[in-house]
């Protein structure tokens, strides 16, 4: 229905619009202004000072953190996608409808448990005297340094992203046209060939979106890098929290935040472009 705005219609449409413009769009836009402000005597003063951008962008620490964050998040997203695929494939195409509902319900539960508490539990698993090294000790191995390594960061990233990736993959695989799969089998395509040439291309958009969400989650996460990675290597999220919380350097933190937003937007556009170009072929 396309009609002129009425008082009745606006009563429902406007509150959310106003709220999200005032408390979501404006704060993000304010980041741009903030990145040109000056800090004097621990006070943030309005200014048109491009120095913050210079300070951040000429620093090697920033680019190092940038590269590390990008690489770790991309690796995390790739591992999550690869590990999730057989799981989602089984849930979507092999399980009965009833088991599938249960599997999906169980995978929703992690979203309502504290990520902090799960990260802390991983600390207990991975620490030098922890559960895993305790188990290894029985077999005479170890102890290995598992905590405070990039591997531990990836475990945290997987904890964060695997449930979401599995759910999104299950949804996209559920909508793959079954008759396509049967046609492939009738044409004597082998199992693997069916998976790679029929199922993955038809579910491509969903699979790429799932990987993209995993990347976004990992890219902004500061819990894994701090509490499982021990702060080394430094990621952009650590750089932001440190700059904001200890240094009062909000304008510089704003520069880092804007660089992150730019990267995420570019990655999202590239991923969506890749997903749909492949889908239309």
């Amino acid at each position: 229905m396309r009609n002129r705005p009425t008082a009745y219609g606006l009563t429902f449409a406007l509150p959310l619009l106003v709220w999200q413009v005032v408390f979501f769009v404006l704060p993000l836009a304010f980041l741009v202004a903030l990145s040109f402000f000056t800090v004097r005597n621990f006070r943030v003063l309005p200014d048109l000072n491009p120095g913050n951008w210079g300070v951040i962008l000429w620093r090697q620490v920033f680019w190092q953190a940038y590269g590390v964050t990008w690489l770790l998040s991309a690796t995390g997203s790739l591992i999550a996608s690869v590990l999730a695929f057989p799981c989602a494939f089984g849930i979507a195409l092999k399980l009965s409808a009833n088991s599938r509902r249960w599997a999906v319900f169980l995978m929703v539960i992690p979203f309502f448990t504290s990520y902090l508490v799960r990260a802390y539990a991983w600390q207990v698993f991975l620490s030098d005297t922890g559960i895993i090294n305790g188990l290894l000790a029985w077999t005479g191995l170890g102890p290995y340094a598992l905590l405070n390594t990039p591997g531990a960061i990836l475990v945290g990233y997987l904890t964060l992203s695997l449930p979401l990736v599995i759910l999104l993959q299950v949804f996209s695989l559920t909508y793959v046209d079954r008759s396509l799969i049967e046609a492939a089998h009738n044409l004597r395509a082998g199992r693997l060939r069916t998976v790679f040439e029929v199922i993955i291309p038809s579910a491509r958009v969903g699979l790429v979106i799932a990987a993209l969400f995993a990347f976004i989650l990992c890219f902004g996460d500061f819990v894994s890098p701090v509490y499982l990675g021990g702060g080394h290597p430094t990621t952009l999220s650590i750089l932001i929290t440190d700059t904001t919380k200890s240094g009062q350097q909000w304008p510089r933190a704003a520069v880092i935040a804007l660089m992150m937003i730019g990267t995420l937007l570019a990655t999202a556009f590239a991923a969506v472009h890749f997903a749909y170009r492949g889908a239309r072929r």
Binding site: F23, L26, P27, L28, F30, L31, L34, V44, I216, F219, G220, D221, F222, S237, I240, T241, T244, W250, A253, A254, A257, M260, I261, L264
Partner: peptide, 13 residues
């Protein structure tokens, strides 16, 4: 939007 970015934007704003 990553929480660190939203958090910083909210704090400053």
């Amino acid at each position: 939007i990553p929480a660190v970015i939203l958090g910083l934007a909210m704090l400053a704003y």
